[in-house]
């Protein structure tokens, strides 16, 4: 009973409480490392990235072309049917200009994450990646972009085998 309650519990601590030793804490960490299997669909996706190619899976049930690829269609709940080669070009669906790292440490040079709809996949079906070779002020939703690949010798079969996506310039 909000109006009938006069005391609300919970004690707020300030940094001075810690600096002056008024409260005690114990610090510790969790050491946990994992080796994640890429799996059947993403395993092949990574192999193709190493070759400088993007691939999807097609489902003949719903006729979707799925990227990232999966071996089963989660909507039809049946196996997907075939591998499909995609272009390494696409359209920016949305983007951000990020000045913070995962641990909230600030960046001077922003990163530009984007959802990029890949040409050849179902409309609007995209992946998360980064944009590069572009002034952050110039980025627009709807911008056409192309993958910039690492040199073949540097590719490891990872999403980072694409360095970033750069705008497709007029006549370029």
């Amino acid at each position: 009973m909000s109006v009938k309650i006069t005391h609300w519990p919970g004690t707020s601590l300030s940094s001075a409480d810690f600096a002056e030793g008024r409260v005690l804490t114990v610090r510790g960490g969790v050491k946990a490392e994992y080796a994640w299997d890429a799996g059947v669909a993403i395993g092949r996706y990574l192999e193709e990235l190493k070759r400088g190619r993007l691939v999807a899976r097609r489902c003949d049930g719903c006729r979707r072309v799925l990227v990232p690829p999966r071996m089963f269609c989660e909507e039809c709940f049946r196996p997907t049917d075939a591998w499909v080669r995609l272009a390494d070009t696409g359209t920016v669906q949305t983007f951000s200009i990020s000045y913070v790292r995962w641990d909230m440490v600030r960046l001077t040079e922003p990163e530009i994450p984007a959802v990029i709809a890949i040409d050849g996949a179902s409309p609007g079906y995209g992946i998360l990646h980064l944009l590069g070779e572009v002034d952050p002020k110039e980025v627009r939703v709807g911008m056409r972009v192309k993958a910039v690949w690492k040199d073949p010798a540097e590719r490891r079969g990872a999403i980072t085998d694409i360095r970033y996506w750069a705008p497709i310039r007029e006549g370029g």
Binding site: I42, Y45, T94, S96, S98, R101, W102, D103, M104
Partner: peptide
């Protein structure tokens, strides 16, 4: 925020160094 990192796909997304603000920023911009 560090505890949120594992919500991203370990193979296709985490290697890109995402943070949780990204998905909100991407959604808000869209």
């Amino acid at each position: 925020q560090g505890a949120f990192l594992t919500i991203f796909d370990h193979t296709t997304e985490r290697a890109l160094g995402p943070n949780l603000l990204w998905i909100f920023a991407l959604e808000m911009n869209r």
